[in-house]
Design a protein around this nucleic acid. Sequence first.
DNA 1: GATGAATGAGGGTTCATTCAT
DNA 2: GATGAATGAACCCTCATTCAT
Lengths: 296, 296, 296, 296
Amino acid sequence: MCALKDKKQLIISAAIKCFAQKGFHATSIQEIVDTAGIAKGSVYSYFKSKEDLLFVAIKHEYDRMMSGVLSVANDINLTPRERLAAQFQHMLQVTLEYSDFIATLKNETDLMVNDQMKAFLNDMHKADFQWYCQSILAIYGDDAKPYVFDAAIIIQAVVKHFTYMDRVQLESTELTRFFMDRLDDLVDGMIRKQQKPILNKEQSENNANPCSPDTSFSYEDSLKAVQSIRVYIKQSKLETKIKTASLSYLTVLDHEITKDQIDPIITTAMISHLKSLGLAEILINLNNLEHYALNQ
Amino acid sequence: MCALKDKKQLIISAAIKCFAQKGFHATSIQEIVDTAGIAKGSVYSYFKSKEDLLFVAIKHEYDRMMSGVLSVANDINLTPRERLAAQFQHMLQVTLEYSDFIATLKNETDLMVNDQMKAFLNDMHKADFQWYCQSILAIYGDDAKPYVFDAAIIIQAVVKHFTYMDRVQLESTELTRFFMDRLDDLVDGMIRKQQKPILNKEQSENNANPCSPDTSFSYEDSLKAVQSIRVYIKQSKLETKIKTASLSYLTVLDHEITKDQIDPIITTAMISHLKSLGLAEILINLNNLEHYALNQ
Amino acid sequence: MCALKDKKQLIISAAIKCFAQKGFHATSIQEIVDTAGIAKGSVYSYFKSKEDLLFVAIKHEYDRMMSGVLSVANDINLTPRERLAAQFQHMLQVTLEYSDFIATLKNETDLMVNDQMKAFLNDMHKADFQWYCQSILAIYGDDAKPYVFDAAIIIQAVVKHFTYMDRVQLESTELTRFFMDRLDDLVDGMIRKQQKPILNKEQSENNANPCSPDTSFSYEDSLKAVQSIRVYIKQSKLETKIKTASLSYLTVLDHEITKDQIDPIITTAMISHLKSLGLAEILINLNNLEHYALNQ
Amino acid sequence: MCALKDKKQLIISAAIKCFAQKGFHATSIQEIVDTAGIAKGSVYSYFKSKEDLLFVAIKHEYDRMMSGVLSVANDINLTPRERLAAQFQHMLQVTLEYSDFIATLKNETDLMVNDQMKAFLNDMHKADFQWYCQSILAIYGDDAKPYVFDAAIIIQAVVKHFTYMDRVQLESTELTRFFMDRLDDLVDGMIRKQQKPILNKEQSENNANPCSPDTSFSYEDSLKAVQSIRVYIKQSKLETKIKTASLSYLTVLDHEITKDQIDPIITTAMISHLKSLGLAEILINLNNLEHYALNQ
DNA sequence: GATGAATGAGGGTTCATTCAT
DNA sequence: GATGAATGAACCCTCATTCAT
């Protein structure tokens, strides 16, 4: 009964371990199945392809790790400061358990095998960043408001750096205290100095964005992008009504792009509608289209 | 002669550009030569293999970038604080020029194709970190001494994070001011709070060390390592004198390892001599031997 | 200089020979390269895929064979009867030379690996049939007009059967005489009996039609078909003007299909335009769309 | 018992349907079981292998179709002409019911997966042809005798062509009348013109023969063939009496082959006896032996 | 008897590397 | 020195077949 789940998890664990050691592209399916101790063909009972295995594995490990982290981080009996500290502490504690997953994540470019992965990694970074922003605002109040992004990006960088430092065994309680102290130092300093912040909202959203719009996006690329989105939507399981509407928006988009003069209002509106579908798989293409359309 | 150099540089640039976009393993030689506009066979006139191309390209771009950075950073007319600021500023300014190189570096695991690359990346990180340590000590004096590593690792993390944030165009003067201010905030806070530092020298040396000594290094492994080094040195193009001396050191090392009681002084001395040859290819084996010998 | 052409021809010959012996799907690339005496990878220098190799090989052999057949068949110094006889004779004479190609063609279903192949085989059959129709009309005059299709399909069947009868060595002059005599017998009999013919124009067009419109074509299929055509046209090398226009027609088609009531006039017009592009690759989809649209 | 039969028939029907659509090699067991709505393993309860499934399915469908065709065709109350007409008509009427089977047969090469299949398809063609020969002789009398093979091969070609023309719905009564009329035209013409016929008995036997005896059959091959037949008979489920007799015949055959002078009478007799066992599996070997023995 | 997860040989394809021109 | 056709190892993936349940 549980055999299926177990085997899938077995493959995921083996894959994550291999990806951590050699990266996605340098890892062969053979190495994964050898690690898992199963036959080559079995992988394809559970995953459509090597790419799919990567995506499912990353997503699954992320969810597994986050479920623990968030349960602690969202404890409503804690003050915001205690909550952030709790989150730090928990994350540091599970670092070892998820060391392979974390090591796998270090190879951004290598993991971006398709738009789905790009969108997922992007979402991960953004969610991470936003949580820091919220925490900082809650802890330090309105005085810190202008510096939320500046502080968040620093703390994100530091935490990432420490979790990526493999094999170093640091005591998590002390390290948590250290992070909180440094955050205090930073925010206090920022508020005291009252200088212009480095990052505004928009810039911060590009933070560590592994799929920020491709500036070399061409006319042909945009046509392909529309096409690709159309295909995705058509085969999606959206309500018929929404699907039809979305396809209409796409047609409009197509017309706009083909025109000599792109109307930014219409284009933005259409893209906005499509973004609101919440389909991570097409997000990157929408971003690219948006960037292309607004810079013609 | 110059034509040769030009072509080599052309290939390196094309390779770095491709590696930046897709990673090392996902980039084919064909893509590189297409980008460079040359024939496939030509790559092998200048580089032994794809791995060699990666190594030479990374090293070359690193040297090129560093020559600029260091020339500014080592300006003796500046105070230590001004020097660090100058280094920040310069690094931020050249970020765009070296964006492909920087993007290539983001994929640590993907780049570690052999011991040579591992050793080189490790050295890069260490040199970086040590420069920050020295700067901090020089700027903040003895009060900061206990916190040098803590501060250095944070500032390293932050700078790396910002340089890796691609395409975000921030004004370098402001950003430099920002980095310096944050460093002030952090070091001031650390000194004021007078808490126990997080990192000691040893731990800091493992910082972001992608090829720290393999702790599972066995007796057999160490024998193999010595043998492997011996082979490498024999076929190397070192001066005869130096080569002979090095092989003698190796013989001593071999004896030590085989003994029941390894003499740390002798062992360290031999390894130190061998490290001073500057042969990146044997560095990792030397590190592993060192770790093994000192932990018996 | 000719090496490239030679090698391509070598691969084609080997492939056709293998396909003739075992069929397309049962033939591995390894067998083909063993037959050709080259390395596996070389196939992919000349052909995109095994499917592409099949298509190019069939098309190439067909053209090669037809160039000879047609040059004889179109000799304007001959009477229609002599022309048909000349065509028979020539075809029988080259049967041996092209025996592998002819044997390959016996496996209709096995060869229909994609729409391109389906369309090509269909076109082959149709061209064949039409040539017989024209010849019969030219030889026997208006009296034979009602029976053109009936006679043509019989003679086509017989010729095909004899060319497919491998290993039987029949004298081509006698066989040609035989074919002409039998055709005389048949047409004379038909005219004499003055019965209703079996085939009308429409039915005859379905003769051995391996890709007549798929009657189970669904709404989703039609959307996919439009999509597929759009992709094909976009990546085609049509003039920009024509491409743009074609894409507009497609958009209109898309709208029509999505509507509750499909307008047959508009739909037919759009499909007609697209058919006139002469792109064999999209022909089958257009046929399917036409059939679907007109039967809603 | 009946459930078993039903399931076997279910698998056969599903298999034939799939083979018709995509051919044997391009059809996977998975597709067949999906079509049948059963589990993958079940196929192997009823069939030894995919090849066996093909063979049994083809044979089964052929028998099923022929039982109907023959029951009509052998009606002794009809004149020979009425009998042939009845056979035509019946065949045309069941064309739809057996359309998948007929479509499957179109791919001769694809179906020839082993000697068993080759022999079976060959036998099918021969039986077909011989029935036409007999019918023609019975209808047109001795005048037609020289032209029996010529007429039969034409009518076989035409009927095959029409049955292979899928989806064309022609009225079977009219088509039967058409076939009979055309046969009249052809035979009348042949008798009237009194020319030398194209095919003699021997040539006609090669008609569409997909597995005529292997002319390169060697002495060693013939020994192997006898051995192979012996093994097959030993493990067969023949009556003990028949089995013993058959093995004796084989021993005689063995002796003959080993002799310097093979006695054609004895050899032919032995082979004839063995052929009469009706074991398709050994037929091809018997044919090869016969060919070898009679050409020494 | 029925099932479908597991197996691994073998398929098509890619690509680093070589070498004759 | 420059070229790119040729090579074949190794990749990802499919699928006929087996077997424990």
